[in-house]
Amino acid sequence: MSTGLTWRDGRAVLSAVHGRRVHEREVVPGTEVGWLLAGPRRCTGAWLVGRDERTPCPHHAEIDPDGGAVQCAPCQSVDRGLALARDQILDDGRTYRLYLAWFGEGLLKVGLTAEQRGTSRLLEQGALAWTFAARGALPAVRRAELTVSSAGLARERFKVRAKLEHWWEHGDADHRRAVLTEARTRAHALLRGHDVELLPEHPVVDHVAVFGLTGGAPAVYHAVEGLADGAVVAGRLRAPVGRHLLLDRADGEPPLLLDTRLLTGWTLTPAVGRPPSGLALVPRARPEAPDTQEALF
């Protein structure tokens, strides 16, 4: 059963479980892949407090084949990551870092991540550029996050669709660096007196080249909006962007964009060489540049 895509030590890794055995495969651009999906789609279990490995779903529960959720309700209720997001864990003894992440013009995000996770959370979110702004215990960093967001400097979340639309046009690295450096300076002014260690010298890290987006996203691609039992996902991998895979098709049709969270929970068997089938696809195209030519008459 697929358990999705994560980033570890700067590498994107697809994982699957068979019983207690975990299988992992690095996402390498240029690789031909193909998977035949078999249902039903099942809950992937939960990450519990105090454990370093995913705990399988004790109910072996089925989940919505087209849904974004990859867990059943009972597993969601005990998952460590979801509990943190809902402020149900006040402190877990770990050190956290406050980050500012840039997803495109006007899309500046503030968030926190456990220091032991390094930069994985920023890569998984598909941040085009980012910097760490502060560090400290969970309660202090969470207060800092709320202070920055309530001041209107950055938001705590953006919808995936908003991020994708900025893959076509994201400015240059100097601009991204300038925006984040200025935002961090403003954040530090807001955080004076907070019980956190400010990080004024942390570099701005750029992921545009890592994600293969230097020239922008493909002008036209087909986004996978739904999967079904018996569907085939196949193509030649491009660089992964966050948790998304771009796959070039052998028939010359526009590339596929797959949010790997949709793949999670399905049983996969190899199907390299087969064409994609059984996919609900939505065409996406680069918006035309606005016509700024003045009227001739």
Rank of each mutant, 00 (worst) to 15 (best):
A271L: 13
V78S: 06
G67Q: 12
R286P: 06
A219I: 01
H166V: 04
D248H: 13
A162M: 07
W102H: 13
L138K: 02
G171E: 07
A61I: 13
S120L: 12
A289L: 15
L37M: 10
P283I: 01
R80F: 13
P270K: 08
H222N: 11
Q293M: 08
L123D: 08
P65W: 00
A231I: 12
L123P: 03
A137V: 11
S149K: 09
G212S: 08
Y99A: 06
I63H: 07
S15L: 13
D52K: 01
E26K: 00
R80K: 02
G216H: 12
G171R: 09
R25H: 09
T131I: 05
E294S: 10
V179N: 07
D259M: 06
E26F: 06
R97D: 01
R286K: 09
R21H: 10
T214S: 12
A38I: 03
S149G: 13
R157K: 02
Q116P: 00
H207S: 01
L128F: 02
G67W: 04
Q71C: 12
P283E: 08
L247G: 12
L245N: 13
F211M: 08
T185V: 10
F103M: 13
T269A: 15
H170N: 08
A239K: 07
R51T: 10
H59N: 09
L146A: 11
L82R: 07
L14Y: 05
V160R: 14
E62D: 14
F211H: 08
V205L: 11
A12C: 05
L191Y: 06
Q71I: 02
Q116F: 12
P254L: 15
T260F: 15
S120N: 10
D64Q: 08
V27Y: 00
K159I: 01
P240W: 09
A144E: 05
L190N: 14
P283Y: 05
K163V: 05
C43R: 00
P254V: 12
T181E: 11
T264Y: 15
V22P: 00
V205F: 02
T292G: 00
D251K: 14
A228F: 04
F132E: 07
A187T: 04
H175A: 01
V204F: 04
G136A: 06
R284S: 03
R284F: 00
P270L: 10
V232G: 15
E288T: 13
